[in-house]
C-alpha cells in the first residue's frame, strides 16, 4: 500500500512539473495532418482535421464521445484500413513522409507508430511472447540474447518487469487489468516505435492503475512522441503538454494544454471544460 501511495504522490509531482507551457514551444513538429476527412460508407465522421503534433511530448485529444477523436487517432497509423467501408482523405505526414502514400507499406508504418488500445488486449500467449511478438515478426532481434534484452528492457520501460520477472512464461491474460495494459505498452515499445498512439488507455482501469499508467506516460515522453485520446479532462491536464478539442467530427481548438484549460478561446471548448457538453 505504501508503494502505491508513493506512486500516487509521485504522479502529483510529475503533473506539476509538466505544467510549464515553455516546455513544448521549442519542440520540433513530428506529425502533420492536413484536411483529414473520414467517411464510413455514406456517413462522414471527420471534417477536415489539420493539426501538428510535437516531437517527444504528449498530445491529448479530448471531446465528448463520438466526436471523432479516436477515429482521427486511428488514421495516424492507418488502423482504419482494417475497417470495411472506411475512406480517409487529406494528408498525414510523419517527418515529411506521407503515410497514405500508396508506396508506403502499412506494416512498416505501424512498426514506427505503435498503438495501445482502450481495453487491454494481451495475446493469449505468455508474457514473454507477448512482448517478443513485435520484434519477432519484424526480425529486430538477431539472437535469443538480443530478444531477451529487448523483452526485459521493454518490460522495464513499461514499469512491469519487477512485478512479472518470475513468471515471464505465464499467460499474459492472467495479469490484472492495469498490469495487462502496461504489458500492452511494453509490447508496443518493444518494436521501437517513434510514435505511440494511446486510445483511452485507462478507461477500463481502476484509479490506482490509472495513476501508474499516467506516470508511465509521463516518463515515456522523454523518448517517444505520444498521442493520447482521453475522455477525462483531468487526465489530459495531468499528462499532456498539448491538447486538441474535438466536437462532432471537427477540431474545435488546439493549443498548449494549460492555455486550453485556463483560457479556452472557443465557446464550445469552454462549455465542454465547464461540463456543459457531455
Amino acid at each position: 500500500m505504501d508503494v502505491l501511495a508513493g506512486k500516487i504522490k509521485m504522479t502529483q509531482q510529475t503533473v506539476n512539473s509538466t505544467m510549464n507551457p515553455a516546455d513544448m514551444l521549442d519542440r520540433p513538429i513530428r506529425l502533420t495532418a492536413k484536411d483529414v476527412t473520414v467517411h464510413y460508407g455514406a456517413k462522414q465522421a471527420l471534417h477536415g482535421i489539420s493539426i501538428n503534433i510535437p516531437d517527444r511530448a504528449v498530445t491529448s485529444f479530448i471531446g465528448p464521445s463520438g466526436c471523432g477523436k479516436s477515429t482521427f487517432l486511428r488514421c495516424i497509423n492507418r488502423m482504419n484500413d482494417t475497417i470495411e467501408g472506411a475512406r480517409v482523405g487529406g494528408t498525414i505526414k510523419l517527418d515529411e513522409q506521407d503515410i497514405y502514400d500508396p508506396n508506403l507499406d502499412v506494416v512498416e508504418l505501424r512498426a514506427r507508430i505503435g498503438m495501445v488500445f482502450q481495453k487491454p488486449n494481451p495475446f493469449p500467449k505468455s508474457i514473454y511472447e507477448n512482448v517478443a511478438y513485435g520484434p519477432k515478426i519484424h526480425g529486430l532481434a538477431k539472437s535469443k540474447t538480443d530478444m531477451d534484452e529487448i523483452v526485459i528492457s521493454s518490460l522495464r520501460k513499461a514499469g512491469l518487469f519487477e512485478e512479472v520477472k518470475d513468471r515471464l512464461n505465464e499467460p499474459g491474460t492472467g495479469l490484472s487489468g492495469g498490469q495487462q495494459q502496461r504489458l500492452c505498452i511494453a509490447r508496443a515499445i518493444a518494436v521501437g516505435p517513434e510514435v505511440i498512439l494511446m486510445d483511452e488507455p485507462c478507461s477500463a482501469l481502476d484509479p490506482i492503475a490509472t495513476a501508474i499508467i499516467e506516470e508511465l506516460i509521463d516518463e515515456l515522453r522523454e523518448n517517444y512522441t505520444i498521442v493520447i485520446v482521453t475522455h477525462s479532462m483531468q487526465q489530459a491536464a495531468r499528462v499532456s503538454q498539448k491538447t486538441a478539442f474535438f466536437h462532432l467530427g471537427n477540431l474545435i481548438e488546439e493549443g498548449v494544454t494549460e492555455d486550453i484549460f485556463t483560457n479556452p478561446v472557443n465557446k464550445q471548448t469552454q462549455d465542454y471544460i465547464m461540463g456543459r457538453i457531455g
Binding site: 512498416e108 514506427r112 520484434p135 529486430l140 532481434a141 538480443d146 534484452e149 529487448i150 520501460k157 518493444a190
Partner: peptide
C-alpha cells in the same frame, strides 16, 4: 538501456 541496439533509422531499415 536502449530498446535495441539500432537507431530508429536502422530499425526501419531492418523492418
Amino acid at each position: 538501456l536502449p530498446i535495441a541496439k539500432q537507431t530508429p533509422a536502422e530499425r526501419t531499415q531492418v523492418v
